[in-house]
C-alpha cells in the first residue's frame, strides 16, 4: 500500500467541506450535541459479518489489545442511557477486509445521529430536511443532478423491503419471510443455495436484482421494514416478521442506515451471543465483547432512533463524483 496525494481534487474537496459544514450547522441548530469520541476501544459490539482492525497498547510489561471502532455506536448508546439526549458524532470508522472500491474505503467518515423519544419514521423526515438544506446551500434549489439524472428532495419514494422484492425480483412476501420457501425460490431463479444461509442468499438477490433500482425515480428512496434477521440492533415490528430499520438510496447508492433502537437488553444480549458465534465460526479476529454496552441497556436506553450516514458517499452525490477518491486530497492505496 502507498500514500497517494491528489491535490488536483482541491475544488471538489472544498465543496465536500461545505457539505460537512452544512450538516453540522443543521444538527447544531436542531439542538443535537456534538460528541467527540475515541477511535480505539478495548471491546466491541460483535458483528457477524464485519472484520475489524486490531492493535495493541504497550507500556513496560503490559500489553492491552485495542480495536479501531467499526462504528461509534457503543460509545453513543452508553451516553444515551446516561441521559445525554439528542446527539451526533462525525468521525472515522474502520472496517477491515473490505478493499477500496469506488463507493467504499476501509477507513471512512461516518455520521451517527440520535434522536430521543422518536422512531425511524421521524428520522426519515429529519434526514430529508437535511438533504434539502445541503442542496439549498450548494445550488440554491431542492434538486440536484447526479450523473445526468435529476434528484429532487421534495419527498421520499417510500417502499417496504417486501414491496421491493415483489416489484423487482418477483418474490412475494410469503416467499420472502419464510426461509425455506425463499431458498427454494432462489434455487429456481438459478442462484447457488447449497451451503448458504437465508441471509447470504437474501443479500445476493438484493444486490443482484433490487439495489440498483433504488433512488432512480427522480427522488431518493427509503427502503424500510427489514426482515428481523437483518436488524440486529433495531426494534421489532408487531408483525413479528420485520424490524424498524430503513436505508436510503440515491441512484442505487446506499447512503444511510436507520433503526428505531432496540432497548430490550435481554434480546440484545441474545443477538450479541449469536453474532459472536458467527464471528468465531467464520474465523474473524477475536475481540472482547462489550458487555458494558448490555449493562448500559439494562440501565435503560431511552426510546430513540439513530442513523448512520456515509459522509464520503453523500459527498459523491452532491459533488456529482463517481469515485470516493475524487473528494480526497490524500488516499491510501
Amino acid at each position: 500500500m502507498k500514500i497517494v496525494t491528489t491535490a488536483e481534487n482541491l475544488q471538489t474537496y472544498q465543496i465536500y467541506l461545505r457539505i460537512i459544514q452544512t450538516i453540522e450547522k443543521f444538527l447544531q441548530e436542531n439542538n443535537y450535541l456534538k460528541l467527540d469520541l475515541p477511535a480505539l476501544s478495548p471491546a466491541l459490539i460483535p458483528e457477524g459479518y464485519l472484520e475489524i482492525f486490531k492493535t495493541e497498547f504497550r507500556y513496560l510489561d503490559t500489553k492491552d489489545a485495542l480495536f479501531l471502532t467499526p462504528s461509534p455506536e457503543l460509545f453513543i448508546k452508553r451516553l444515551l442511557s446516561e441521559g445525554i439526549g439528542d446527539c451526533y458524532s462525525m468521525g472515522k470508522s474502520f472496517r477491515n477486509s473490505e478493499p477500496s472500491s469506488p463507493k467504499h474505503q476501509p477507513e471512512f467518515t461516518m455520521l451517527e445521529w440520535y434522536k430521543v423519544g422518536k422512531d425511524y419514521k421521524y428520522m426519515a423526515h429529519e434526514v430529508l430536511k437535511m438533504l434539502s438544506e445541503i442542496s439549498w446551500e450548494l445550488f440554491g434549489k431542492k434538486t440536484i443532478t447526479y450523473q445526468g439524472k435529476s434528484v429532487s428532495f421534495d419527498k421520499w419514494e417510500e417502499m417496504t423491503v417486501a414491496e421491493s422484492f415483489k416489484k423487482y425480483a418477483d418474490i412475494s412476501s410469503e416467499e420472502l419471510f419464510d426461509p425455506n420457501t425463499f431458498i427454494a425460490k432462489a434455487q429456481k431463479k438459478g442462484y447457488v443455495t447449497d451451503g448458504f444461509t437465508y441471509m447470504d442468499i437474501w443479500s445476493q438477490i438484493y444486490a443482484q436484482e433490487i439495489e440498483n433500482n433504488l433512488g432512480t425515480s427522480g427522488f431518493p428512496t427509503i427502503l424500510y421494514d427489514y426482515p428481523i434477521q437483518f436488524a440486529a440492533l433495531s426494534k421489532p415490528n408487531s408483525d413479528g416478521k420485520t424490524a424498524q430499520r430503513f436505508e436510503f438510496y440515491i441512484e442505487g447508492t446506499e447512503l444511510g442506515n436507520c433503526f428505531s433502537e432496540l432497548t430490550d437488553a435481554s434480546l440484545q444480549k441474545k443477538r450479541f451471543v449469536e453474532d459472536d458465534c458467527e464471528r468465531m465460526k467464520s474465523g474473524k479476529i477475536e475481540h472482547p465483547v462489550d458487555w458494558g454496552f448490555i449493562e448500559a441497556l439494562e440501565k435503560g436506553l431511552p426510546e430513540s432512533t439513530g442513523i448512520a450516514i456515509g459522509i464520503e458517499r453523500l459527498g459523491m452525490i452532491f459533488t456529482n463524483s463517481k469515485n470516493i477518491e475524487d473528494l480526497k486530497l490524500i488516499s491510501i492505496k
Partner: peptide
C-alpha cells in the same frame, strides 16, 4: 469488486462477458 452490503455475507461484484455472444452481465457472487 468486493462489496459488503452490511446485510448478510459479503459479495464479489463481477462483470462477466459471454465468450459466445459478447454480451456482458453484472453478477454478484457470494
Amino acid at each position: 469488486e468486493f462489496y459488503s452490503p452490511g446485510k448478510g455475507s459479503a459479495l464479489m461484484r463481477s462483470k462477466l462477458k459471454n465468450v459466445s455472444s459478447g454480451k456482458t452481465v453484472d453478477y454478484n457472487y457470494k
